[in-house]
Nucleic acid binder design. Structure first.
Lengths: 342, 342
DNA sequence: TTGAAAGCGCTACCAG
DNA sequence: CTGGTAGCGCTTTCAA
């Protein structure tokens, strides 16, 4: 295939054609200082004629700053993150920022490798890290390298970073109170391993709330397993199937709280296949309010996290951090959505 | 918050400290030509001492090429794309490429705006466009600007571009034959509007296959609506609910083929809520084989598109295009996965 | 308001 | 194998 290898025009070619200097073209383009009307016209003509488009690489090099944002998520294949990202990217693109997304698959090694690569980003670039764990040293190194860091959905602050996360305390009190009022005697938390701070916080708050509302001893169960990290739907299914096989039903909780909707969907299948009914035999509550959660049978009661709002709030913080270089820490409330599964 | 504003070290500072020239450091780093062992050691020591990290912007500017890949998808919030991207990005990152993802929300305007922005990308950069429509002029402009373009999941070739898509012809013959053998008398296609070439091809092949297997006249239905683009689950639900309300059941098909699993999930809810049963009253088949499709009740029969394979194949093509600048066009087969909904 | 010129940090060339 | 040097395309002084 032949290729019409048109050299890109440069700013000096535009300048030459317009009969002005490169600096003037630059001023015209960036509005740095005003340019006389007649020259402006000639410059614009030259730009059009040559189809000139500025080279952002050169400009970055010279300005010593770039409009780059790097986003790390644990799992791109999870609508929780993509919903946030969609609303975040919308806003960021509108203001001309570039976004690099990557996914570390809940692997600390992978995450660390990605963070290391970021050391070579231009100073002033913004790094948004969703969740993550065991990476404190690298985050500090990033800050040393003069990058700005925002911790998202993490419920943890590190000096020099900003943060935005969901409130994982109050909502668990709401949730447990709801279970109590519904008359469930034994409640269980079915959760991913407690590596992530927000998950750990959910766990701790669950226990606190359970005790607060009068549950104790055998009436509180916590189940977690290290497989419950990726492929949550399937792993939730497999784990719950095993639980149901191995445990007499009277020693199981009569309401389960799953730490994510994906887990809950897997759990639901296992319960159905074992011949039990939801919510009669087991109540079930999820976390995340995925689109699909309203569509499954029975529709899933869940904790709603407004991802669109999170995304826009995250962008607010990003702007502040980029412009003013200060640190901002914020929390967003969650609310319970009651459907048929509990 | 105070910030330890450590100026980034440059290659010449490393050179000075190691007592060599900048060129030698560059050679050492890039392996362009070999560097004597003693100098290598001194250079490495200097790099470590200064925590030197090369600046990719400067390097790009000088090399006149960048390792940038821009990916446009219609909807990031759809696992079909994220699954492909996960496998694609994995491979790309391993080889040191940067990936920029964006989503045009099935909007032609937005897509065009994004493509226009890409005109300013460095020449030689790769642009991967998923689906898309009405953008032929801009794609040609990109090629004029010396970018490389790959059309993904589109079943269309444009001169100067490469492409990778799923085979949307043979599989529809398999599918319709399956419906025929199952004894369905009237079959219907429930599809997004025919803006996208691959959707149109599915539609055309559906009709061809239907006739081939002896369906005709009233025994073939095609339903589409312009709302069936985003929020497919919910829109599929609303549209099918309306159909069931407005149409006597005996004039409806007894098997529906939905052009995506998300639509099928919405359809399923509408059918259930209307008091009908799947597959007894209606057979239902989807497209995409999403993770969740195996977990819903009844488990969804669907056309499997191997997204992981697509992603790796896409990366193969990307490399070839980047290295050799030739055009490659490929197609990947799909297969039917039979579960309980049909 | 303008043009000339000095770099941003790096790589590629050339002479030795 | 090495050092010196030119220059990628752009922005930003500085003098005029």
């Amino acid at each position: 295939m032949k290729r019409h290898s048109s050299k890109r025009p440069t700013i000096s070619q535009v300048a030459e054609r317009a009969g002005v200097s490169a600096g003037t073209v630059s001023n015209y383009l960036n509005g740095t200082v005003s340019v006389s009307p007649d020259r402006s016209i000639r410059i614009q003509e030259a730009i059009d004629a040559l189809h000139y488009v500025p080279d952002p690489t050169a400009s970055s090099l010279r300005r010593k700053e770039a409009r780059d944002i790097f986003v790390l998520t644990p799992d791109l294949n999870n609508m929780f993150y993509t919903k946030i990202l969609r609303s975040y990217m919308d806003l960021a693109y509108k203001e001309g920022y570039n976004i690099n997304i990557s996914s570390y698959e809940y692997s600390r090694d992978l995450e660390k490798r990605m963070l290391s690569r970021l050391m070579s980003a231009r100073k002033g670039s913004l790094v948004v890290i969703f969740n993550g764990f065991g990476d404190e040293d690298l985050i500090e190194a990033l800050i040393q390298h003069d990058l700005r860091v925002i911790l998202a959905d993490r419920n943890k602050t590190i000096a020099g970073t900003s943060s935005l996360s969901f409130d994982n305390e109050n909502v668990l009190f709401d949730l447990v109170r709801f279970l109590k009022e519904k008359g469930f005697r034994k409640i269980g938390l079915f959760t991913e391993p407690l590596l992530l701070e927000n998950i750990r916080l959910r766990h701790d708050s669950f226990l606190k709330a359970a005790r607060y509302y009068g549950y104790s001893g055998d009436n509180i169960t916590v189940y977690f397993d290290e497989t419950l990290v990726l492929n949550k739907m399937n792993q939730g299914y497999l784990n719950m199937r095993r639980i149901l096989n191995e445990t007499p039903i009277q020693s199981l909780p009569d309401a389960w709280v799953a730490s994510s909707d994906n887990l809950a969907i897997g759990i639901m299948r296992a319960i159905n296949e074992a011949g039990y009914r939801i919510p009669d035999d087991f109540g079930l509550v999820g976390f995340d309010n995925l689109d699909v959660s309203e569509f499954i049978q029975p529709a899933l009661t869940t904790v709603n996290q407004d991802q669109v709002y999170f995304g826009s709030k995250l962008w607010d913080i990003s702007r502040r951090v980029l412009k003013t270089n200060e640190c901002v820490n914020n929390t967003i409330m969650q609310n319970l959505i009651i459907r048929s599964s509990c």
